[in-house]
């Protein structure tokens, strides 16, 4: 039988679809295999009392975003805009601004 273009395309798409489905299978197999590593990391976090992931080591407010204070991004002087590249990837945690918003709404004296 003569090979038709549509048959070749369907075969190609079928291979792609199989690979696509295999990614789900691979994810399931790999995550089952790394349960032990995750548990070991969790133990390390408990033992050392770690609070953050070590994603960016260039600035303290991106190394430990959950521990940063509101002013640390502008650490050099009051008008010194933050200049670390990772500052543009990470936004400050919500709770940082939230505590100031709380104070703002409760203040009794006029600004």
């Amino acid at each position: 039988m003569q090979s038709r273009k549509s048959h070749r395309v369907f075969a190609f798409l079928a291979i792609c679809l199989t690979l696509f489905l295999l990614t789900f299978a691979d994810a399931a197999i790999q995550s089952a295999g790394s349960a032990e590593t995750l548990a070991a990391n969790e133990r390390l976090v408990v033992q050392l009392g770690l609070t953050d992931l070590c994603l960016f080591t260039e600035a303290r407010y991106t190394r430990h975003p959950s521990q940063a204070d509101l002013h640390s991004a502008f650490q050099d002087h009051p008008l010194g805009l933050e200049h670390f590249p990772s500052g543009s990837l990470l936004s400050p945690p919500n709770n940082l601004a939230a505590s100031y918003e709380n104070l703002d709404s409760k203040t009794k004296s006029a600004d």
């Binding site: 995750l38 969790e42 133990r43 976090v45 609070t51 953050d52 992931l53 521990q67 204070d69 640390s72």
Partner: peptide
């Protein structure tokens, strides 16, 4: 995947951290 891993690994982080602030800084 990063969010998922962070949630798994940081489950055991201290319950409360107390920082002292002076002039808006740690």
């Amino acid at each position: 995947a990063l969010r998922h891993e962070a949630a798994q690994v940081l489950k055991g982080t201290p319950e409360v951290i107390v920082q002292r602030m002076v002039a808006g800084r740690h």
